[in-house]
């Protein structure tokens, strides 16, 4: 048995190292470090089809993450998906006629919301709605359209 002082120091070092490892996992490996949930404002966008968009999917502008999808709902009267986007508060100069579309990262990757800025002088704020949206591309529909188009071409 080592002296009690050495034992105490080693146990302290062990616990400290393990907590450091946990901190590393939380901040550097997982999304806890990049998550700032408190400082956001929420805007709404309606889509005809959101494909496989999920809550927490990134919202990007020019490829930069400016927010996250905070909730996805369904409007029974207009048969549209209601997507709430939590935009980080530091991006407070996004025009309110911005164009939102659902894009896919890579060929088979996850879907995210991309914003294209409009030209308005007024900016998005808590509760505003993005009017112009483009639905997700659904692979079957794209292929369907492609084949349909080909068939038409050949007819002509």
């Amino acid at each position: 048995m080592k002296t009690s002082k050495t034992v105490e120091i080693l146990v302290g070092a062990f616990v400290a190292a393990a907590l450091l490892a946990l901190f590393f996992l939380a901040m550097k490996v997982s999304n806890l470090g990049t998550l700032d949930t408190s400082d956001t404002f929420e805007v709404v966008a309606r889509f005809d089809n959101i494909g496989s968009l999920k809550v927490k999917a990134p919202v990007t502008m020019a490829g930069v993450e400016v927010g996250r999808v905070s909730s996805i709902g369904f409007d029974q009267e207009r048969y549209q998906a209601v997507v709430k986007l939590a935009i980080y508060r530091r991006f407070d100069r996004i025009p309110d006629d911005t164009f939102a579309k659902i894009l896919t990262a890579g060929l088979l990757g996850e879907q995210y919301v991309g914003l294209d800025p409009g030209g308005s002088d007024t900016f998005l704020e808590e509760g505003s709605e993005i009017e112009i949206t483009q639905s997700a591309m659904v692979l079957e529909e794209v292929i369907g359209q492609f084949i349909f188009g080909k068939a038409k071409e050949e007819k002509q």
């Binding site: 946990l22 996992l25 490996v29 997982s30 999304n31 806890l32 990049t34 990134p58």
Partner: peptide
């Protein structure tokens, strides 16, 4: 690192592991 941070959820992955 960026891909990792984007896809590993602290709640879903880390907390459940703990």
């Amino acid at each position: 690192w960026v891909q990792m941070q984007a896809r590993i959820d602290w709640n879903e992955d880390l907390s459940n592991g703990v």
